[in-house]
Design a protein around this nucleic acid. Structure first.
Lengths: 206, 206
DNA sequence: TAGATTGTTAATCGATTAACAATC
DNA sequence: TAGATTGTTAATCGATTAACAATC
């Protein structure tokens, strides 16, 4: 629909606009934002233009208005609830990650097959048996399933999430998932970034 | 130098080849890998071609040879040591993340300004005062600094890392860092993926 | 040799950027 | 009106894909 590179930059726009908003700056030009973000002002204007004529010629962009628009595009106008499946280190770290809440995302519960993890001992959030995924989804109104399980468990867990009615999966396991085509999967591969660095180091220093 | 999209796919190639290797499969075609990875065989052949003529016409690719080559490209032939700066939830989760070790990356130590975190109580790895960054870098041979600190601390911490001699930074704080041009920064923005999902949900269901 | 699959070219697709008319 | 900055077009750049000659 919209260029995915454009959508990927919106969180960055959201943050810079939030900052301007806190500083009570009412108007900002694409050039000012570009400088701050290290990209071109053309790119910002083009990205925003996909969603209408959001600025004021000769003046810039109204910070509050643009912020509202960006929240709308990113689905942040409504608080989205997440289910984290896999209460291991990564799952628990994400559960406590403040960046999620700052972007209107709320972890509602964790799930695990390991009964030693069930309950509310691991932090402020409850860990439920994986078998309760479907019922808790309805009860707590969760929309996105976060997969922080070992690679071998990812596909079966994805099947359960699909059966439970989740239409969006955020998958941290390095495994291609097979899902019905009305279900979207976002893959998060943490090693790509650091291996890119490793590649550059190897090129430069061996 | 090489297309960054190509380098970003190499970790995926590494994993699929490791799997073939474990299954004692000696030869594999670009088409077989493509099916498994959900991409085109053209793309695989093109990606690999940047690094030489790595396959055997009519036969495919020698798994062990290609694996060695990919490790070399990604700098995995030598174990790279990481310093994690910021022993919060995310830092500790990364410290214990098995995916790093599986890709030849070794967390050697954590650093924090909070004296309550110093020592070896948080797990198998020591947490040092941030003031020891430079001395421990030399002692432990760390090359990559991982920034898991709050946004407000990111730039000062990056300055310290640069002063300590780190030439590669893996930055989880949503902040553009200013560094000398011989220092590479890889930005990791965890909210991009999930906000992309949120965007799709908003489009489809409101 | 016949069959298979690579490596590479050329075409296509998508994303970025420069430039400027429109307009506040 | 004069100055500024948007929104949009066209040019450029980079990445993907199809097709096929080269060759095992």
């Amino acid at each position: 629909m919209f260029p995915k590179a454009t959508i990927a930059r919106f969180p960055m726009y959201f943050r810079v606009l939030t900052e301007y908003n806190h500083q009570n700056i009412a108007l900002v030009s694409s050039e000012e934002m570009a400088q701050k973000l290290g990209i071109t002002s053309s790119q910002i204007r083009k990205d925003l233009s996909y969603f209408g004529s959001l600025g004021i010629r000769g003046a810039g962009y109204d910070v509050a208005y643009l912020l509202a628009k960006i929240k709308e595009v990113l689905g942040m106008d409504k608080s989205r609830r997440l289910a984290i499946i896999g209460a291991g280190k990564l799952g628990l770290a994400l559960a406590g990650y403040s960046g999620l809440k700052q972007h209107g995302l709320e972890v509602a519960a964790l799930f695990d097959t390991d009964d030693a993890k069930w309950g509310t001992n691991n932090g402020p959030l409850p860990v439920f048996p994986l078998t309760e995924l479907a019922s808790q989804k309805e009860k707590l109104g969760m929309e996105i399933a976060v997969l922080t399980v070992p690679a071998s468990a990812a596909q079966p867990v994805a099947n359960l999430a699909v059966k439970a009615g989740f239409k969006a999966l955020w998958n941290f396991a390095p495994v291609r998932l097979v899902v019905p085509k009305d279900v979207i999967v976002q893959y998060e591969d943490l090693v790509v970034g650091i291996l890119t660095l490793s590649h550059h180091l190897a090129r430069k220093f061996g």
